[in-house]
Structures are given as C-alpha cells and as structure tokens.
Nucleic acid binder design. Structure first.
Lengths: 92, 92
DNA sequence: CCTCCTTGCTACGGATTCTGTAGCGCGATC
DNA sequence: GATCGCGCTACAGAATCCGTAGCAAGGAGG
C-alpha cells in the first residue's frame, strides 16, 4: 500500500510516464515535466528509486528492471483516463 | 494528460484503490484512507466524479462504469509496485 | 593552468495544498 | 422530540510545492 502512496504524489506518475520511452537526464526530465522545480523532482526521484521504479544509468534516469511492464500499465492507465475524460464527463 | 494530473493528486489513487471491492460511504471511505481530512476527500471525489472514475450510488461512492477496467489496471500497478519494493529496494 | 560550458543537485522565500477539528443540516430511529 | 449517524463545509495551522538563484564537479578548448 505504501507503493501506491508514493505513486500518488505529485509528478510521480508523470515522471514515470516521461521515462517510458527511454532514459532522460535530470534536466531533460525536468523539461519534459513542465519544468517542475528541481527540489520536487529530486524528491520524487529519490522516492521512486527507493521503490525500485527508477534507476540511474550512464545515460541518466531510466525505468527500473521491470520498466516495460510498468510502461504497459501506465499506457493502460493513460488510455483509460483519456477515454473516460472524453466519454464520461458529461453524463446527464 | 489532464487525467493523469488528477490521478496524480494526493489520495486519488488510494481512493480508487479502496473502492475496487465495492461501494463505500463517505465516512467508510475516509476511514479506509487513513482518515483523510474530509475536505481533501470531498475535493478528490468531485474531481474523480468529473473524470467519470467515481459515481454516487445508493450504497455510497463506487467506481464508475469503466470501474472494472480501472480496478484491473490499479491491481496491476499495485502488484508491480509490491514486487519492485521487495526485489529492488536493496540493490547493493 | 585557465576559462567556458553543461550537469546534477541544493537553498530559500513565497504561493499553494493538506490536515485536524469542529460543527451544520438532514433523515432515520427510538 | 431527543438521539443517532450520515454527507459535507469552515477555517486556521502545518506540510508541500513552486520559482529562482546558485554551487561543486566534470569535460572541451586554448
């Protein structure tokens, strides 16, 4: 349950989402996330690293070993959200 | 991306997670979520209802029409996180 | 050795969000 | 009509986040 708590903090999902296509440097990741403040980003990265969701490689930050599975889950989540946002907001 | 933004707010994922097994009343949901403050809970519920993720039934709050799919996604996410937390935290 | 870059990351004050507690209005029940 | 639990609101204090500036380290070029 702790894991969902970490994933439910601001920018956590977004960081993972931006990393789904490959590694990014700290600054590139920051730029990809609407220029988050570096303090927040660093905090989230530390938490996500503690979870094993993110790791540091030679090319910067990347998804952990199970990254591909996570990418698929995030894609599902994203698709679900997009579909819901279009079809279910107005439901009179 | 807006949807992921809402899902990335504090307690959003947790609320959905607690609703995955069936409807809960406002107070029960609050209790299930480590006694969130009612203001936060009410805010999150409003946002999630606007997304179509949560709806109000006679038995209280419940996952929306696409709730089952979301529940499965959250379960995947949870399992992923749990597995990562066990296998990857200690990585000397 | 000495600049000039870029990179990861920290510091800090102000703005935003969350928390904790109290309580209202309402319907059901006694 | 008194009591109970319910959904929900109010509000101040605490925690968090943002925006900006800047540091130390490492490499490229002179």
């Amino acid at each position: 349950m702790r894991a969902l708590d970490v994933l439910g903090r601001r920018w956590s999902l977004r960081v993972l989402w931006e990393l789904r296509r490959g590694p990014l440097t700290f600054r590139a990741l920051r730029a990809a996330c609407d220029d988050v403040s570096p303090s927040s980003l660093n905090l989230r990265l530390a938490e996500l690293r503690a979870l094993g969701a993110v790791e540091v490689t030679g090319d910067g930050y990347a998804l952990g070993a199970r990254g591909e599975e996570l990418g698929r889950i995030l894609l599902d989540l994203h698709r679900w959200a997009e579909r819901g946002a279009r079809g279910a907001v107005r439901r009179p």
